[in-house]
Simulated assay, not measured.
Amino acid sequence: MRSPMDNHALPLVLIGGTLCNPRLWQPVLDRLNVSDVRCVTLADATSAAQASRSLLSELPPRFLLAGFSLGAIVALQMVADAPGRIAGLALLSVNPLADAPENAAPRREAVRAARQQGLTNWLSASLWPKYVAPSRVDDQALHDLICLMAEESGLDTLAAQTEIAITRRDNRAALAALACPIIVINGLHDPICTPHHHQRVAQSAPQVKLFTVACAGHFTLLEAPDEVALPLRHWIQECLHA
């Protein structure tokens, strides 16, 4: 017997984070049964509003939407811009707040450092310890996969994505009016998008369901695909029957 997820007409749109590509989603997709998946890599836009406009102009009238980290910021912008087109929303490792103005200079300096040092060297020294739970810091295969995505994405993409982070807006108010299932998934050991950030999202709308992955840091999708796939599977089923 075929699952309803084999046949549904709603595509699942996945928006990756900074220096991420479809490799980010593959371990979880291997655990789901979804036939129509669109993986989005944020590469050209320099604001969440610009990325939202571009995606909404290309996507079908209704879709399920999941965003990770920077992709979740863009997903929230899409919620604000076109709530009626979104049949379900999943936010993973999200900071919903507008960026503090004083963060702009260090963010742009980080891009310059990455250009000087090379993406892998820069990421390994500055971001890797913040990306995963302490128990995974010595996981060389996971480290190499994240660095591979960064190298495949490239420095120009990092520069554009940094501008999205700097100029993002707080779109939590749009969640309260969103008439579809919403889930939020975070890693307990994430110092970038902290449990507090996810609580702020969960408090924004009564229909938000919050799931915390106790063994993961920021990269929940790669650190704990089984634990992430389970609530995503239930969310998809709920969306299809809403």
Score class of each variant (00 low, 15 high):
Ala229Phe: 12
Ala125Lys: 11
Leu55Glu: 01
Pro60Phe: 00
Leu127Tyr: 15
Leu175Gly: 08
Leu76Arg: 08
Ala242Val: 08
Gln77Asp: 13
Arg38Asn: 09
Thr157Ile: 15
Leu119His: 01
Asp44Gly: 12
His189Asp: 11
Asp138Cys: 13
Ala150Pro: 13
Val137Leu: 15
Arg85Val: 10
Leu29Phe: 04
His143Ala: 09
Asp139Ser: 05
Ala174Arg: 00
Ile73Trp: 08
Ala87His: 11
His198Trp: 04
Pro11Gln: 07
Ser153Asn: 01
Asp99Gln: 14
Trp122Val: 09
Val37Ser: 00
Lys130Trp: 12
Asp226Gln: 13
Ala179Asp: 15
Asn171Glu: 07
Met149Gly: 06
Val34Thr: 11
Phe68Asp: 04
Leu188Ser: 13
Pro225Ile: 12
Trp128Asp: 12
Leu65Glu: 00
Asn7Thr: 15
Leu76Met: 15
Ala49Asp: 12
Thr41Asn: 07
Asp81Phe: 00
Val74Gln: 01
Cys180Val: 13
Arg107Ala: 06
Ser52Pro: 05
Ser35Phe: 10
Cys180Arg: 09
Asp226Cys: 09
Leu65Tyr: 03
Leu76Thr: 09
Asp156Tyr: 01
Ser69Leu: 03
Arg169Leu: 12
Leu222Ala: 03
Thr18His: 02
Asp6His: 12
Ala45Leu: 02
Leu221Asn: 06
Gly217Ser: 00
Ala105Val: 15
Pro101Cys: 13
Asp156Thr: 09
Leu230Gly: 10
Thr212Val: 11
Cys39Met: 07
Arg172Cys: 08
Ser153Lys: 01
Leu55His: 02
Asp99Gly: 09
Ile182Pro: 04
Val132Met: 01
Glu227Arg: 12
Thr194Val: 05
His218Thr: 05
Gly154Tyr: 01
Trp235Gln: 03
Trp122Ala: 13
Ser124Val: 12
Leu42Met: 04
Ala51Tyr: 06
Met1Val: 14
Val213Asn: 04
His8Thr: 15
Ala150Cys: 06
Ala202Arg: 04
Gln26Gly: 06
Ile164Phe: 03
Leu221Val: 09
Pro206Tyr: 06
Gln199Leu: 13
Glu223Lys: 02
Gln116Lys: 15
Asp6Ile: 06
Glu223His: 07
Val13Phe: 07
Val132Arg: 04
Leu70Lys: 03
Gly17Gln: 00
Ser153Pro: 03
Met1Pro: 15
Gln116Thr: 14
Pro96Gln: 07
His8Cys: 15
Ala82Trp: 01
Leu14Glu: 03
Asp190Ile: 05
Ala179Phe: 00
Thr194Glu: 07
Lys209Ala: 14
Ala179His: 12
Trp235Phe: 03
Asp99Ala: 15
Ala90Phe: 04
Arg31Ser: 04
Gln117Tyr: 07
Ala159Arg: 04
Ala49Arg: 11
Trp128Glu: 13
Asn95Glu: 11
Ser54Gln: 14
Ala174His: 07
Ala216Glu: 05
Cys147Arg: 08
Ala43Leu: 08
Phe68Ser: 05
Ser52Leu: 00
Pro206Val: 10
Ala224His: 05
His234Val: 07
Pro27Tyr: 08
Val228Gly: 00
Gln140Cys: 11
Glu151Gly: 05
Met1His: 12
Val213Cys: 08
Thr162Ser: 07
Ala98Gly: 02
Arg172Thr: 06
